[in-house]
């Protein structure tokens, strides 16, 4: 009787890669809903557009690389990349910005490195960085303004579609982000003056705080489901807070910690972008270092850099360091006095 010969273990948990990707995608839903509610339909349209482009780009490259389409599309990694890009891009950015960012993310950021699991950089952030440096105007002026600011209307679904696909931009719905505003205005005004601006609406950030809280909720869900570990988000947020408290203690000179934590892409970055497992550090201690590095970079670029937000750059720069961090942060293995470091095996012999 011929029997099957297999390697142990023969039992297997019910987890799967597709499930992981789908769970992450689902965890973004609260953030997406809040964004749509407060900033109009631009983001939703963006997400849909980005997902479609991502799937098409993935299918195209897989076809060219002669890989089984169904097998790879089912892992939903392209879907997730599209969703994250759609969420990260300015809600009313022209359609071609989204298309370029997504296609670049999938083709150059992922598939050309060998497909899922082989990309050294976070694909979504690579696409984002590309359009950010290529089209700075479109990337900084097309942010929707919250409905909490009564003097501006909220973009409806039709408005959003027209604005995005006309590519012209619509001043009626857009404005600069709170981070951008604060950074530019603080040089010749005081914090108290800025608080009175409609953008800030007190100490809070004109609706952005709710979006960030929604992402925080989604992120905690991921931690609870053990899709991600607490290390990277905690380290990143802690580093960012610490920097802004210690270095930027004076709100008359620097953006305060509340704005750092609850505006921009902070929570989205901490729980969904920086935790992308493929390109992040993987050892427990390495994750802490990696997360802290992202946090510090975000603070540094936000404060002294030319760009109002910096999650993309922070993550990409730390992606570069991830393999090195991993090599030097191996855990102490059972039965060993101390952890090994680096990649040379001389002491192993």
């Amino acid at each position: 009787m011929a029997l099957l010969t297999l390697t142990s273990p023969h039992a297997h948990g019910r987890n799967s890669t597709s499930r992981v990707m789908m769970t992450v995608t689902l965890a973004t839903v609260p953030g997406l809903l809040v964004t749509t509610a407060l900033f109009g339909f631009g983001t939703l349209v963006n997400v849909v557009l980005a997902v479609v482009v991502a799937m098409l780009a993935e299918a195209l490259v897989l076809r060219i690389r002669q890989r089984p389409l169904g097998f790879f599309l089912k892992d939903y990694s392209a879907l997730l990349t599209g969703v994250l890009l759609g969420l990260a891009l300015p809600p009313l950015a022209p359609w071609w910005v989204t298309v370029v960012a997504t296609a670049f993310a999938i083709v150059f950021g992922k598939q050309l490195y060998g497909g899922m699991g082989n990309n050294p950089f976070n694909p979504a952030m690579l696409g984002y960085a590309l359009v950010l440096v290529s089209f700075p105007v479109q990337m900084t002026t097309n942010w929707a303004v919250s409905s909490q600011m009564a003097d501006q209307p909220l973009a409806g679904l039709l408005d959003a579609i027209t604005t995005i696909f006309s590519g012209s931009g619509a001043d009626a719905f857009t404005g600069a982000t709170p981070l951008d505003t604060y950074k530019h205005l603080i040089s010749n005004s005081t914090a108290v003056e800025l608080q009175k601006l409609p953008t800030f609406n007190g100490w809070m950030a004109g609706g952005w705080e709710w979006v960030n809280i929604a992402y925080l909720v989604g992120g905690l869900f991921l931690v609870y489901r053990r899709i991600i570990t607490w290390h990277i988000p905690v380290a990143m947020l802690a580093a960012l807070s610490l920097c802004s408290i210690v270095l930027g203690w004076d709100p008359d000179m620097y953006t305060p910690v509340s704005l750092h934590l609850f505006t921009g892409a902070t929570m989205l970055g901490a729980f969904f972008i920086a935790t992308d497992p493929v390109s992040a550090a993987t050892t427990p201690r390495g994750k802490l270092i990696y997360g802290a590095g992202v946090g510090i970079l975000v603070y540094v670029i936000r404060t002294w850099g030319a760009y109002p937000d910096a999650v993309a750059f922070g993550v990409l720069l730390m992606n570069l360091a991830a393999p090195f961090i991993d090599a030097y942060t191996q855990p102490r293995t059972y039965g060993h006095e101390k952890a090994r470091r680096g990649l040379t095996s001389k002491e192993a012999r």
Binding site: L3, L4, T7
Partner: peptide, 25 residues
């Protein structure tokens, strides 16, 4: 283990790539 289909350029049949199946002694 044989490398998964992502490594083989000419392999368009995912099932052939799985050495864990079908290898009967």
């Amino acid at each position: 283990p044989q490398q998964g289909p992502q490594m083989i350029a000419t392999d368009s049949r995912p099932h052939a790539a799985n050495d864990n199946k079908g290898e009967a002694a």
